[in-house]
């Protein structure tokens, strides 16, 4: 009994240590030069405050890096970033902090869509323009923010149709042949899922020979994507194309297809069209598993800089600014992978 208590105490101590270590690693907010807030320097450089969601994915980290690399001191910017660790209240505090410091621009990547009216009203009253990136906010008062920069998910859906046309052409499949398509959808109701599904469906209508057999959600995860694909393969013995609304689900689909003894990719029977174009997807394209990948670009920095420059020059800017997004084919993957930032 006694020994048992002792071991339990040791175990508890280890657990506590582990959780402490966890705190230590996450706590420090990332900031480039928050130490000096001298006003005389401000007159020379443009002071940009960036409120980031967190560091939850490769995509997000590339997003952060893009901002940091764009707004450098050398280019005449004073850049400060707050990592909100995926907490909306931390983001609100950070915005108030930036208003206090009287920054020139606030760039906000909102964690949630709703609940921004009050704090953005304060920024507006202080005369600080707010640029929203990535996710959109829900508000009745559009004057609360100057512009929004993000992905056009519907356009990504359109691009996927064009990409599939090209892939089918390069595989030498005639227009008359019936093409059986299944879709692995993302988390239902997410803007990426809605935009990509609708965009694809809209442009797909022009192809009479394309047939959407089924759509099912794989929740943007590899395991669910694999499970749904296994089911698809059993329900439909003759699948020609898989549209997978993110890369992780594509990896799952590839595993399911191979396990069933079928082939996929540029040299295989089943064509896979994926979205996001993360690093691992490029590796999969090089390995010959995925045919084509529609990018979801996290490099918002240059676009935001363009907006800020226009505002500095006193020009009016568009309320909605989409980032440039590309489509990558498997044959080009090997030459591009080295240049990718994420």
């Amino acid at each position: 009994m006694r020994i048992f208590k002792k071991t339990a105490a040791v175990i508890l101590a280890i657990m506590m240590f582990m959780s402490l270590a966890g705190c230590g690693n996450n706590k420090a907010p990332v900031s480039n030069d928050s130490s000096d807030t001298g006003t005389d320097e401000k007159s020379k450089s443009i002071y940009v405050g960036f409120v980031q969601v967190g560091a939850e994915s490769d995509w997000r980290m590339a997003n952060t890096k893009s901002m940091q690399e764009t707004f450098t001191e050398a280019k005449g910017y004073k850049f400060e970033m707050v990592d909100a660790q995926q907490k909306t209240d931390k983001q609100i505090t950070a915005i108030r902090d930036f208003i206090q410091k009287d920054v020139d621009y606030i760039v906000l990547a909102p964690n949630t869509e709703a609940g921004w009216d009050t704090v953005l009203g304060e920024a507006k009253a202080a005369g600080i323009p707010v640029i929203i990136v990535d996710r959109m906010i829900q508000t009745n008062d559009n004057s609360l923010f100057t512009a929004w920069v993000g992905s056009n998910f519907k356009q990504e859906g359109y691009d996927a149709v064009t990409a599939l046309e090209n892939v089918l052409k390069s595989k030498g499949i005639p227009d008359t042949q019936e093409i059986n398509i299944v879709t692995l959808q993302g988390t239902m109701g997410s803007s990426a899922q809605i935009g990509r599904t609708d965009g694809f469906a809209e442009k797909m209508a022009a192809h009479k020979n394309w047939k959407m057999l089924d759509k099912q959600s794989g929740d943007f995860t590899q395991e669910k994507g694999q499970e749904v694909m296994e089911s698809f393969l059993k329900s439909y013995p003759d699948i020609d194309v898989v549209i997978s609304e993110n890369d992780n689900m594509s990896f799952g689909a590839v595993k399911a297809i191979k396990a069933a003894g079928k082939t996929c990719g540029p040299k295989g029977d089943i064509t896979i069209v994926s979205f996001d174009a993360v690093h691992a997807a490029f590796e999969a394209m090089i390995a010959g598993d995925i045919d084509v990948d529609v990018e979801c670009n996290p490099l918002h920095g240059p676009r935001v800089e363009k907006l800020i420059k226009a505002l500095e020059a006193g020009e009016s800017v568009d309320k909605i600014a989409y980032v440039d997004e590309d489509v990558f084919y498997a044959k080009d993957a090997a030459s591009i992978i080295g240049k990718r930032a994420y």
């Binding site: 109701g189 759509k215 099912q216 959600s217 499970e227 749904v228 089911s231 059993k234 329900s235």
Partner: peptide, 15 residues
Amino acid sequence: LTTTLYAMHVSADQL
């Protein structure tokens, strides 16, 4: 149950 609903092609939002 999950596999059945997949096999019956129930759409994802109703699942």
